[in-house]
């Protein structure tokens, strides 16, 4: 399996799509995590009536404070940046598994004797390594963004404690992993990337968002929602704080610990589904 892991690492490392996704992830963190909020918090309020101006300035001040290094993890996890990273991870997972079908490379690789399960495990582990790199890249980009805001605002640079960084790495990995392995499992089931990415993104961006925003107040419905991937991703992020009022971010539905357990369980299910599907099917 180590041989398969090393082959898969080479494959992912040299694949342009991996680095394109890394750049997109970098842009998501910097643009939607920092630049966007910094710009809207800095809009001139001169033309507004007195009472609204004061309100806007207070809101802007609150927003800019949220972008400082001391609030780095809150900003990345509570405001949905890592949730968006999930969509990128889904694409990465689907590409890692599904491209083999499009290129027809499974037959070439499998006839070299890696063994089906070792081949798949090597692929999954290599994906995990890259997800970890994506988490670190996201945190580093966030740190750079928050540092830039601190410089612009002439504010003190105070970083979150190291243990929170360690937790953030674990949580970020869990969030990216659950989506990446969903993409991986879908690509294995559908033997290709297009349908896997299409369905995965439609589920994460359209179906789950709609289900979350539906104005249904009912215990059974809330229980159902508490098992959605997006809800658990958001709930896990709430470990670092709560979203500011008025930004349309729903309240977390479950405790972060339960969300972590749910996401971990889903990850295991996706891995098992992919393995069972891959192990038993013909390679045509």
């Amino acid at each position: 399996m180590l041989a398969s892991l090393s082959a898969e690492l080479l494959k992912l490392r040299k694949r342009p799509a991996t680095w394109v996704l890394a750049l997109v992830w970098l842009a998501v963190v910097l643009v939607f995590g920092y630049l966007f909020f910094y710009l809207i918090s800095s809009f001139p309020t001169g033309g507004l009536p007195e009472d609204q101006r004061a309100q806007q300035e207070a809101l802007g001040e609150q927003l800019r404070r949220g972008l400082l290094p001391e609030n780095l993890l809150e900003n990345l996890f509570v405001n949905g940046t890592f949730g968006t990273g999930g969509a990128i991870a889904l694409i990465l997972g689907a590409l890692a598994a599904g491209s083999e079908y499009g290129w027809g490379t499974l037959k070439t690789a499998l006839t070299q004797r890696p063994g089906r399960l070792a081949f798949l495990l090597g692929k999954m582990l290599a994906l995990a390594v890259f997800l970890l790199l994506f988490v670190l890249l996201g945190l580093a980009a966030g740190a750079a963004g928050s540092y830039a805001v601190a410089l612009l605002e002439d504010a003190a640079v105070k970083w979150p404690p190291l243990e929170d960084f360690a937790r953030a790495v674990g949580m970020g990995f869990l969030i990216l992993a659950v989506w990446a392995y969903l993409g991986f499992a879908l690509a294995t089931l559908f033997r290709g990337t297009a349908l896997a990415i299409g369905l995965g993104l439609a589920w994460s961006l359209a179906v789950e968002s709609t289900l979350t925003l539906l104005p249904v107040e009912n215990d059974a419905y809330e229980t159902f929602r508490s098992f959605l991937l997006g809800e658990n991703t958001a709930s896990l992020g709430s470990y670092f704080g709560s979203a500011p009022q008025g930004f349309g971010v729903p309240e977390p539905l479950v405790e972060p610990e339960r969300a972590a357990a749910t996401l971990a369980a889903y990850t295991v299910v996706f891995v098992v589904v992919a393995a069972l599907s891959f192990r038993g099917r013909d390679v045509t």
Partner: peptide, 29 residues
């Protein structure tokens, strides 16, 4: 003990011929 070329040759398009073989060599041990 088996080497095979089944239907059309299929490799990773973004890798060189040598890198493709190196990867296959890793699978083959």
């Amino acid at each position: 003990g088996v080497g095979a070329l089944v239907e059309s040759p299929a490799f990773y398009p973004y890798l060189s011929g040598r890198d493709n073989l190196r990867m296959m060599a890793r699978y083959a041990g």
